[in-house]
Design a protein around this nucleic acid. Sequence first.
RNA 1: GUGGGUGUAGCUCAGUUGGCAGAGUACAUGAUUGUGGUUCAUGGUGUCGUGGGUUCGAGCCCCAUCUCCCACCCCA
Length: 422
Amino acid sequence: MAAKYSIPRGTFDILPENSYKWEYLKTTFKKVCETFCFKEITTPIFEKAELFERSSGESSDIVQKEMYKFTDKKGRVFALRPEGTAPVVRSFVENNLDKSSPVNKLFYYGPMFRYDRPQKGRYRQFYQFGAENFGSKTPYSDAEMIAMAYSFIKKLGLKNIRLEINSLGTKSSMENYDQALKEYFTPHFDDLCPDCQKRLEKNPKRLLDCKVKSCKQIAKDAPNLLEYLSDEDAKHFEEVQKFLKLMNVPFVINPKIVRGLDYYTNTVFEFLNDNLGAQNAIIAGGRYNNLVSEVGGNNIPAIGFAGGFSRLLLSLEIENLFMGEQSKPDIYFAAIGQEVKESATKIIQELRINGFKVEFDFEKGSLKSQLKSANKLKTRFVAIYGEDEIQKKSLVIKDFFDSSQEEILVKDVINYFSKKIS
RNA sequence: GUGGGUGUAGCUCAGUUGGCAGAGUACAUGAUUGUGGUUCAUGGUGUCGUGGGUUCGAGCCCCAUCUCCCACCCCA
């Protein structure tokens, strides 16, 4: 053992025995997105570091300490993407997608990178899926986005997941609220945990979801964000709720949801699974009406979400749900003797070209061991080919379902299996 | 970045007061030479995470280091 090289900390291999599960998640997500008429977009896994510094907020932890930054040979500073929204916005702006269509509905998935301490549901290279809607500012588009995430969760069959929504309002109401929070918490300053004392200046909304008991106690009577929304923002939020109800998407309002990235405005939402431990957010997102212009585009409203595949997988495992199936051979080709095996390769290639999944072991000797392999691979059909069959230009086909056997002519083999295997 | 736990066969794990490295499972082969599943027999591998130290002797004790797990933090 004692392998010479080991995998980098906080990363993981997806081995053959699990690959199909990831594939299942990806294809299911894709299918759901397509029912909402979203189109796939793929961007590079690295971008100019500045893109993330600008979009996520200079002060966020992601930018401050979690980015994998590097400099290329010409001194350009890049970062492995820590999240998916900024690159999609960059591509949207750079390719002038808004010019050819007033609304663009996009989805993506792929690896993201953050230098975090690894933990359950948290890795340094992790796989996210996400979707963005550019160009639509109606409350309906907020609800549609949430409904799409909800549909994905439903499609997977997950039950123990709840949706929480909130509205942060626009910039002015957010500033008013921050001010109110500061006024409320400052008299209690000495009773706050050290983290919260820091947060009070930097990002007072963070005080609301502190886990320290004493802070929680103080935060209980803090001013409510929803009361600081402008009339217009409040109306928007109410309309979103109206559409969610119409679409039968159950939710609860949690005025304490705060998103980690600076760019959110108005609606924010989280899909949570409390059985996952500390990293309980499965899908999270919100509206970001100012980000496109901030990255250099026109003043285009947008809303989106992102989710983590491994947290989703954990959730599926906990609820013991279907996670796709490993691909298995249609036919195991058992040939007896070296000369027969050589002659078999021609038939096998013919079968494979016609789309059948055919397993064949050129080295295994006895028929018995080949049948054992076929059984282990859960193959239904075994084609038995030996001296007798060569003479007769035939094949014996054994069906493991009922242990029946029949002899067919080699020239009919494609036809035969076309009927047997759909 | 901080704290707690952890590491022994491919996998899941035993391993006594420090005294020859173990089980289950999986894998491979075989049971009158062309018929799987069940059964039986046989077989193999370990730098005991890594590097030091204590000791006649270390899987076990001490120090360091790394990994993974859990929590803080942060977030998907």
